[in-house]
Design a binder for these strands. Sequence first.
DNA 1: CGTTTACGTGTAAACGATTACCTAGGAGGA
DNA 2: TCCTCCTAGGTAATCGTTTACACGTAAACG
Lengths: 339, 339
Amino acid sequence: MSTIRDVAKRAGVSTATVSHVINGTRAVSGQTRVLVVQAMKELNFVPSALGRGLRTNSLKTVGFVAADLTNSFFAHVFRGVESRAREANYTVIVSHSDEDVGHESEAIQNLIAKGVDGILLAPVRSGLEDAEFYQEISVPIVSYDRRLTAVNIPSVVTNSQDAVREAINFFKARGHERFALIAGKQGLSTTLERGQAFEQAASPHRHWVFYGDSRYEGGVHAARWLSEQPVRPSVVLVGNNLMAMGLVVTLQEHYPEVLSSTVLITMDEEPWTSFVRPPLSVIVQPTHEIGVTAADLLLQRIRHTDVPLLTTLPCRFVARTDPVTAGHPLPDDESGPTS
Amino acid sequence: MSTIRDVAKRAGVSTATVSHVINGTRAVSGQTRVLVVQAMKELNFVPSALGRGLRTNSLKTVGFVAADLTNSFFAHVFRGVESRAREANYTVIVSHSDEDVGHESEAIQNLIAKGVDGILLAPVRSGLEDAEFYQEISVPIVSYDRRLTAVNIPSVVTNSQDAVREAINFFKARGHERFALIAGKQGLSTTLERGQAFEQAASPHRHWVFYGDSRYEGGVHAARWLSEQPVRPSVVLVGNNLMAMGLVVTLQEHYPEVLSSTVLITMDEEPWTSFVRPPLSVIVQPTHEIGVTAADLLLQRIRHTDVPLLTTLPCRFVARTDPVTAGHPLPDDESGPTS
DNA sequence: CGTTTACGTGTAAACGATTACCTAGGAGGA
DNA sequence: TCCTCCTAGGTAATCGTTTACACGTAAACG
């Protein structure tokens, strides 16, 4: 690996000149520029990001903390992030929190030690007492998926509450009168908001709320709980795709009659939601756009540009109805996707 | 951010001592150690990876190049990589190749410029003429999923050929006599090997090979091709999960009779493969272990330890049979998963 | 003709760690 | 007593860049 000094020597100029040629930070005569460029070619010189990073205190790297990349929600968000980051010549370091407060802290520590310029985070904490924790972080942060209230940190979220309301109303209008919510991990802003929207939309009617843990096992428990109800809801909204899978697998295996007689709605489109019989209705979040937007905001913060504290992206509700469970169609119902 | 000098001053020692306390590279008296540790705590000092990296010429960072992280195969491999890397105090930068030679080169360039200590790669190239390209890379490389023949680069692959043979034989033993392979992108070692294994296992009987492109669209085309055959195969093996999905979706929508009358086998377990009716049989690769192993090998190479040039991990064939399509059961057949 | 102004370039000090080399004091052996 | 060896610790060079400052020349301006 050749250094900037090697290039300077070969081109017969100073390292300053070489640096300025590379970065275009100072006028350099045509002749000299040619000489330098040629020398760089010949030595196939690549400037060391380390040297530069040490001096400028920026490695052009950002951290991305996901709960779990094998969850396709996060994988798609990440692709959005990565595409934007690459355009801006940044690279992305990925860490997992696995919805664990300790893991999250550790991940953030590591990222900071690595000298990242900023961090994208789906925060596991949300309480007021945690505000301090996030506030003390010494690099710019943008939160995605989950809102960080009471903290001066920009968040990119979706209006899933509206979608929840739309979904419940959709089936209400078709005659359904008993609704349940399988809620996610308590404390997450998404859980809270979706819970409120659900309460609000379902409240004139009978409704249930079961608190899961946002993991596959939560869905398994929910299935058991569901099957034990003397009177069962006819519409079940699941607040997260992992729980939905646990629920469906368990129902399919042990309580097939529950599965076939209940309308299920879940978050986040995945292939299997349409392959299951009956198929699941879905609240689709703009995952890629979440990533792109969050990355944009982070890069702006890194450049010290002011950014809005809350960005809300729209969801799309896709109804997949089934003759048995859908309820009675509306006069103008085509049972296709709705917006 | 405080530096090692601040710590040294506060503890009343030299930077050398602080450094040695941090790294345990030299004997330090108990007293002094306590002083230093306390000073670090008080300033909550975190050593800069940049400074260290510049000096030691290692950022403790590795690059991970996937075709596409939204493909759960790569996501799971990545988790394996990340867990091992974290244990060894390395962080991981992720890039995508999208099976594109240009993207791959770019990704590798960027990683090297960022000063990674090594690269994990699912190489898009494989020909002899490409050997040179990979050989010229100036940091240690380990290839995963795909074998890099004729190049002095360690590979971690699976014995999917054995699994392919096992799968075909499984259905041959149940009376099937017409087999097809939907092969992946040409040039990948996996495509070649699985093709050979398929040929070998199916060749006494009538068989077809359709070349897809390892993407969703390849499956769509394959579905059309399949439906157009005057005599259709009764067992279809798909060489990659994206194509399998394209195939199933298209069949389900346009040619349901083909779907219900054909045994489908695919690579890599995903939730939807068991939700589809009829369910798909699957060749399960040890994805997490691939990641762990590849990471291990890379870290060893970084430490200049010799490693084997080829590591092969075993696959598992999971048969999911359906009364209509399975063929006649063997005398002792329980239709469960086989090893 | 003296004074700006502009332009092109070089010198050398950072950035934050690691580490080769050196110093000094005390213990132990001959 | 002298020499050797061990232990504990300091000094300062170094890694590869960027960049503040200085310098010299030539053109432009009054």
